[in-house]
Amino acid sequence: MKALQWTGVNDLAVNDVPDPTLEDDRDVIVQVRRTVSCGSDLHLLGGYIPFMRSGDVLGHEFLGEVVETGSAVTEHRVGDRVVVSSFVACGQCWYCRQELYSLCDNGNRNPAITEHLWGSAPGGCFGYSHAMGGYEGSHAEYVRVPFADVAPSPCPTTSPTSGPCSPPTPRRPAGWAPTSVVCSPATSSPCGARAASARWRHAPRCSSGPNGSSSSTRWRSGCA
């Protein structure tokens, strides 16, 4: 697959990299539909976080479609459209049970770095240096999402012209003409049309009440 790799300070390249695979039965693989360049990508790009290695894939804010699920995943099926939290959290530790997910004790695969630096390690984060777990990021065609029953949130169904899955509106503010815009068929088709097509095999689940997903989150993480 193609991915955007950090290849050095202020140096990026789009290269072919190995497709992600399921490494744990709680993983899913998400085909990325939208991935956002965050301000903190600039800190990583500029070498201000000294725990990047050449070849690391950036990107930690994304949504997409589940294309493969581990055997222990119960909350997601192939075809689900999901928004994935940038932080990797187990959902079961002391911090996760209090819904302090970015402080998860188990999300960071390299806790020694931040334990030494800060006294204790926060959770992991996609595409955010080896200090934050060294997870491959979302500026790629596919990304492995660990602890998938905790991290991704289903996209609610929305009107064709608004909502989290719809393409950006062409009504941009005056004076905000982008320097470069590339429109593809996918970006010009509204969300509702895509949801109704055969591409999405399962209708996204939608919570009716404002607290629906929150209670669902608590249930998933084992908290009453």
């Binding site: 940038s86 959290a89 402080l103 929150s214």
Partner: peptide, 9 residues
């Protein structure tokens, strides 16, 4: 940082 699993829904 951000507790996305709590707030994104």
């Amino acid at each position: 940082q951000m507790h996305g699993q709590r707030y994104i829904p």
